[in-house]
Lab assay of single mutants.
Amino acid sequence: EEDDHMEFCRVCKDGGELLCCDACPSSYHLHCLNPPLPEIPNGEWLCPRCTCP
């Protein structure tokens, strides 16, 4: 299965362990989110761009 998510964080543009949005190709480091997440959430996760009205 091919993964179309970005291979770098949308905020800092660095690679590493990234959290991928379930609705778009964006990826983020947990510490780059505002507010930062302490751990990878269970289940579906939507990035700030997808949850913003």
Rank of each mutant, 00 (worst) to 15 (best):
E1G: 05
E1M: 01
E1V: 05
E2Q: 06
E2F: 15
E2W: 04
D3N: 15
D3Q: 14
D3E: 14
D3T: 15
D3Y: 15
D4P: 12
D4K: 15
D4I: 15
D4H: 15
D4N: 15
H5M: 06
H5D: 07
H5I: 11
H5V: 03
H5E: 03
H5P: 05
M6W: 07
M6K: 15
M6Y: 04
M6S: 06
M6V: 09
E7D: 12
E7V: 13
F8I: 04
F8C: 05
F8R: 10
F8G: 12
C9K: 04
R10Q: 08
R10K: 06
R10V: 05
R10F: 15
R10W: 06
R10N: 12
V11S: 08
V11R: 08
V11L: 08
C12I: 02
C12S: 00
C12R: 01
C12P: 01
C12E: 03
K13L: 06
K13N: 13
K13T: 05
K13P: 00
K13Q: 05
D14K: 08
D14R: 07
G15L: 07
G15N: 04
G15V: 09
G15Q: 13
G15T: 12
G16N: 04
G16E: 15
G16I: 07
E17Q: 12
L18M: 11
L18E: 01
L18I: 12
L19R: 09
L19I: 15
L19G: 02
L19T: 07
L19K: 04
C20Y: 14
C21F: 01
C21R: 00
C21N: 00
D22V: 09
D22N: 14
D22Q: 14
D22R: 13
D22W: 09
D22K: 14
D22L: 10
A23R: 11
A23V: 08
A23M: 04
A23Q: 15
C24V: 02
C24F: 00
C24Y: 02
P25K: 13
P25E: 13
P25R: 14
P25F: 08
P25C: 14
P25Q: 08
S26C: 08
S26H: 11
S26P: 04
S26E: 12
S27R: 10
S27Y: 10
S27N: 12
S27E: 06
Y28I: 03
Y28N: 02
H29F: 01
H29N: 00
H29S: 01
L30E: 07
L30Q: 12
L30S: 12
H31T: 07
H31V: 05
H31G: 14
H31Q: 04
H31N: 14
C32M: 01
C32F: 01
C32D: 03
L33V: 10
L33C: 08
L33M: 06
L33K: 01
L33G: 03
L33N: 00
N34T: 06
N34D: 05
N34E: 10
N34S: 14
N34R: 10
P35H: 04
P35F: 05
P35G: 07
P35W: 04
P36T: 14
P36M: 10
P36V: 13
P36L: 06
P36E: 06
L37I: 11
L37F: 06
L37A: 12
L37K: 06
P38D: 06
I40C: 14
I40M: 08
I40L: 15
I40P: 13
P41S: 13
P41W: 04
N42V: 09
N42G: 14
N42M: 08
N42F: 05
G43T: 07
G43M: 04
G43A: 13
G43R: 09
G43E: 11
G43F: 15
E44H: 13
E44N: 09
E44F: 04
E44L: 07
W45N: 03
W45M: 03
W45G: 03
W45I: 02
L46Q: 09
L46C: 14
C47G: 03
C47D: 02
C47P: 00
C47Q: 06
C47R: 01
P48Q: 09
P48W: 04
P48D: 15
R49P: 08
R49L: 08
R49Q: 15
R49D: 14
R49N: 12
R49E: 15
C50R: 02
C50P: 03
T51W: 04
T51G: 10
T51D: 15
T51S: 09
C52R: 10
C52Q: 08
C52V: 13
C52K: 06
C52M: 12
P53F: 08
P53L: 14
